[in-house]
Every structure is written in structure tokens, then in C-alpha cells.
Design a protein around this nucleic acid. Structure first.
Lengths: 345, 345
DNA sequence: CTGAAAGCGCTTACAG
DNA sequence: CTGAAAGCGCTTACAG
């Protein structure tokens, strides 16, 4: 298939015996064109099936009206919804999204960032991969004068715009509610502690125990149990203890909680009467399992919209220096069957 | 935040007292540069934190190394996996993906297509929205000399590259297996018949009935039941019939099947003993419901890879005219609990 | 191997 | 309101 010659503003200009300047002005709806010629130009453009070459336009204008998004995976509801939120807000403004998946790999993340820089995107939105080793690539974004917005999994020490959840508070409330249901030995599946969100969730858990005068039991805290498989593995270990837990808070993700549920069911632990389970993120499937899984909603779509609006807002005062801004969204515990010990099951 | 002046090949050239031509050559790893100056240029580029301006490069070269993808929704496993497959194959070749969601809206689909044309993508990959009214926008892609590849939900009359499933065959096999399990009155939830995939699935259903000498019962065929809500609504109607069906084939999607399951459970129909349920697409959640839902796997990730490879293959013989090619992938019935009548439940 | 020059398709300050 | 011209940052045919 041969790329065909496309209609350009020169073609239109030639046909109408005006200059490309005028065509460009008409196409951009400038006031500095005669109304009738403007209409004529627009009509001709339509006829010749003209499409602006955004590449050329952006090159000339020095901006791309494109926002790059880098997320670990697009097929998790949380990220898909954030993206949908960003899209919803940017779409009307004529912005494009380039979406990249890091697949939780540092190398892929770096390469994605480089691609986006090359593409001259106006802004990069990122939730870092768990595998991220250092943040030179993010600093690099800043060095190129590209707006950087972090969300959810943020690198705290990097001073950029951020949209986050109050993980600590959410985690605290979830564990409190679990305790209220009468659970006594609550295990924690924690995520890689290099990510702030997982540290915060752990802190919330510890605070809730402290507030309720419950001891911290080391063997009930399992490191690095953040995928379904690792959650399952951790559960096998926990339920095999002499004194197994009566509840497991998979603070890392619903996927991990799903692993817990599957192993618990396989080992004939009754959920929620013998074992309470709580996940994190409110993935769609948590409603479908049996029993349904208690989790924490992060208002992902709204997070996405917030990210986009933060960018537009920041653009407005583009002559001043960026003031690092952090927007924190309060998540909400969604109490479902998997932790309803009080209710007869 | 002020966009900073970026390093260009002129900056490098100036510093090294060579011409931009040489810098460009070195950066493109051409052989027509002295080896030592090449190394020097590369080193200097690194030092000055040079990033190629892809916009300029693409404008000059007349190609963008970008593929546009338009899908109804990215947060359905099927589409997310196809995208992941495309990405996997294109990533290594240095291609970028621009992902757009039509949200099942015709207007949004048209706008997405226009954006992608403006962006001068090299190829557009699309699965059309259910709402698509006509195909001028797709014809327009072709008219602009942009490669167009349709997958899954394809417009048959448009002669483009296509990657599809053998929907009829898969549907036929699924219904056959349902019949083998001893179900006698099998209802069909059909999708909007303007889409070929839904017509084909219906044909498969009818063929299976015919093969087994089973009558087609009109009241058991429900039109336009392709979302969870519509699936639920259809089920309420079906289960309220004097002679309700003993199985429902939600040929449209697993979401529809989920609606069926929820209503059936609410109405105290036992699945699978009183009612068999089969969905379509093998969304992740079908494994998690109780009972788990029988469905049809479309090899989505592989579909995505196939799409990408089809494009690359087509590029190789770029001097000849495009021969419309259709690649059909055979889906696979995944038998789960929701249709296992024979097995004691 | 290297340079000078043209050009990809736009936009916009400048002059009228 | 309109045109001529420069320039965004690259690449590449041409000449040497």
C-alpha cells in the first residue's frame, strides 16, 4: 500500500488563488481572513478531504497537545478507570493520549518515558512500576521541560504534581472495621516497601492495631505478597501456622485478596466466619466472588479527571514556576461479605 | 512551567564543528560518517541530553511509526489483551501506540479516527463500536493511504486486512456441548445484528439446533441482550415464561452471561442443574463467579500479535497493491461449572 | 566521508 | 484583511 499524497494547504491555496497563509488562517478560524473567503476555503478543504498534518502543526507551534500516560497495566480496572477519567477530561480539549504499559518492568518504563519525550508530549502522567530502581528517567522528563504528574504510586521525593489517595487513613479504617467485626488475629499482606503507597498502608494497619490495643505479631506480617500467586502462597503459610490468623488484610491489591480467598476455600476455611478477607482497589471482580470481597475504593475515574484538570490548571499560569501540588483523595472502605462476621453467614 | 529549549542537532553540530548533516547521520547510525566522529557525536549527544524530535523526523520522513488503535473499551479483558498483544509485537520494532476508546459511540469513533488521521499514524487498528452507523470514516482512512486493519468486530463489506474469530463455528460447538449435557430448551441472547459477529454467532446456534433436530423456538431468542443489564432483563423475561428455557447462551458477551447468572440466582434457579449458562469471550471474572461460567476463549493476546504481524508483513511488500487478507482464529469453548449438568452438582 | 541546500506541512511576526 | 518570508528540527539527494 502506497502512502498517497495528501491534500495540503498549498493545494487549497492553489485551487483558490490565495496564499497558504490565508488558508492556514481560515482553517484556524482566525479573524484575519475575509468571511466569504474563509467559508470558501473551509468548503474547499472539505471537498478535497483535507486533514491537517498535526505533526507539522505541532512542530511549528512547539507543542503537541498530547499527553503520555505510563501505567503498569491497562487491564486492571483501577488503571483502566484512571485512564478513562483522564481521557474524559482531555478529550474535549482536543488532547490526545499515548498510553504505555510498563508491565511492572523498570526497563520498559524507561523506554516508554524516552519514547514519550521523543514524541514531544506536553505532559507525562505516570504511576511507577514496582520494579522501578531509580528515578533518573523521571528527572529527565522534568529536565526536558515536560510537565510530570504522578498518581497513586508516586515517588515522594520527586517534587512534581501528584494525585494520590490517603492510603494510610483508608488502611486504618479498613482494619478498624475488621476489628469491629470481632476478628482478633489480623494478618497483613504487604507490598514491596520501596513504594510509598505500600508503606503507608502498612502504617495504617499498625496504627489500627495500636489504637485497639492489639499486639503486632511478626509472623502475621508477610512481605511482598502483592500478586494473586504471592497472596496465595502467603495464605498457605499463614493458615498453616499453629495459631493461624482469623483475618487477612491484603493491603496490596484485590488480586492478592483473590489468591487468599482461593487458598482459604481450598483449605476449607470458611469465609467470613473463620477467616475475614479484605483487599484493596475495588476491582470489578471483588463483587462477583463468593463470598464477595471487602475492599477499598480509590475513586479511580475521578482520580483520572483530577489529574487532567490539574494539568490544565497548571497550564493557565504557565509564566510562573511550578508549585508542587499534591491532591489527596480519600478512599472508601466497601464492606462486603468477606468480612461480615457479625452478620450470620 | 516554561517549556525549555531543547538540545537539537544544531547544538551538537556547533559544539563539535561539524554540520547538522553529519550529526543526523551519526545519530541514525549511518555508515557515511567517520567512525571516530560518529562516536564523538554520540557521546556529545548523550552529554547534552539530546532527544530526537520525533515530530520533525516523522514529518520529514513522511511516516510516524505510530499505530492507532480504536476499541470500544479498554477495560474489558478481551480488548485489553488484544492491545497488549499488539503492543508486544510492535514495541520491539520501535512503534508507538495511540489508544482511543470509542465507548461504543459512533461520534466518538469518528472523532478518534479523525484524530488518528491528523496524527499521521501509519496504521489504524479498529474494532468497531456497536453504535456505528456507517463506514465513511473507515473509508476515509483508506483514502488517506493509511493502512486499516479490522479485528473481531469487523465491517465485512469493507475490503481491508482483517483478523477475526470463527464465531459461527465456536458458537456451534458451544451449543452442541450444551446439548450434550442434556439441556433441551436453549435460549439465545443475541447481539445487535448490524454487527457481523453477532449474526455469525446466531447462525452457529441455529445450526447446532438443526443438527440435533431441535426446533427453533422464537420466544427463546432475545434480541439485543448484550450488556449485563440487558442480559438480566432478558433473563427475567425468559424465566418467567410458561415453559422457561433450561439453558441460556449469552452469545454476546460474558457481561451478559453475568446478568443471566445474577438474575437466575436471585430467582432461585439452580445453576447448572436447572439452568445452564454460557457466555462469550473468557473474561477473567467468568472463572470467579459461582458457579464459574462456561465461555469461549478468543485468544485475544494472540489476536493482537497477529494484527501487528499482519501489518509488518504487509509493509514489506509496500510497492504492490494491498491484497485483502483475512486471518481467522479458531476460538475454544471453555467448559466450566455453569453448564455441567451431567456432573453431579 | 562531508557539506550545502532543499523540503516535509504548517504557523506567525512583519509589512503593507 | 492579505501576502512574502522565515522557521519549527529533522533527513536526504546531490555534489564534491
Amino acid at each position: 500500500m502506497k502512502p498517497k499524497k495528501r491534500t495540503t494547504i498549498y493545494d487549497i491555496a492553489e485551487k483558490l488563488n490565495v496564499t497558504p497563509s490565508s488558508v492556514s488562517r481560515a482553517l484556524n478560524n482566525s479573524n484575519y481572513v475575509n468571511e466569504t473567503t474563509k467559508k470558501l476555503i473551509l468548503k474547499t478543504a472539505e471537498e478535497l478531504n483535507y486533514k491537517r498534518n498535526t505533526l507539522a502543526s505541532n512542530l511549528r507551534k512547539g507543542q503537541s497537545k498530547t499527553i503520555g500516560v505510563v501505567v503498569p497495566r491497562i487491564n486492571q480496572n483501577f488503571f483502566a478507570n484512571v485512564i478513562a477519567g483522564i481521557e474524559d477530561a482531555t478529550y474535549k480539549q482536543g488532547y490526545n493520549l499515548i498510553i504505555c504499559q510498563s508491565n511492572e518492568s523498570y526497563e520498559k518504563e524507561v523506554q516508554s518515558i524516552n519514547t514519550l519525550i521523543n514524541q514531544h508530549v506536553d505532559c507525562i502522567v505516570i504511576s511507577v512500576s514496582v520494579d522501578s530502581k531509580n528515578y533518573k528517567h523521571l528527572q529527565n522528563v522534568l529536565d526536558h521541560g515536560i510537565q510530570l504528574i504522578q498518581f497513586d504510586r508516586v515517588v515522594e521525593e520527586l517534587e512534581t504534581l501528584k494525585v494520590i489517595n490517603d492510603n494510610e487513613q483508608a488502611s486504618f479504617e479498613a482494619v478498624n472495621q475488621i476489628i469491629e467485626q470481632g476478628y482478633k488475629r489480623i494478618a497483613l499482606l504487604e507490598g514491596p516497601q520501596n513504594l510509598a503507597i505500600f508503606r503507608q498502608r502498612k502504617t495504617g494497619y499498625l496504627n489500627a492495631l495500636a489504637k485497639n490495643n492489639m499486639p503486632v505479631i511478626d509472623e502475621l506480617i508477610i512481605e511482598n505478597a502483592w500478586t494473586k500467586e504471592l497472596g496465595a502462597k502467603a495464605t498457605r503459610k499463614l493458615l498453616g501456622l499453629k495459631q493461624p490468623p482469623d483475618a487477612i488484610f491484603a493491603s496490596t491489591s484485590d488480586f492478592s485478596a483473590l489468591g487468599v480467598l482461593e487458598v482459604a476455600t481450598a483449605m476449607n476455611f470458611k469465609v467470613p466466619s473463620q477467616l475475614g478477607i479484605c483487599g484493596y482497589s475495588n476491582e470489578d471482580f471483588t463483587e462477583l466472588t463468593s463470598p464477595s470481597i471487602t475492599t477499598i475504593d480509590q475513586f479511580s475515574f475521578y482520580m483520572g479527571k483530577t489529574v487532567a484538570n490539574l494539568y490544565f490548571q497548571e497550564m493557565e499560569n504557565n509564566d510562573t514556576i511550578v508549585v508542587p501540588k499534591i491532591i489527596s483523595i480519600k478512599p472508601k472502605v466497601i464492606m462486603r461479605t468477606s468480612t461480615q462476621k457479625l452478620k450470620k453467614d
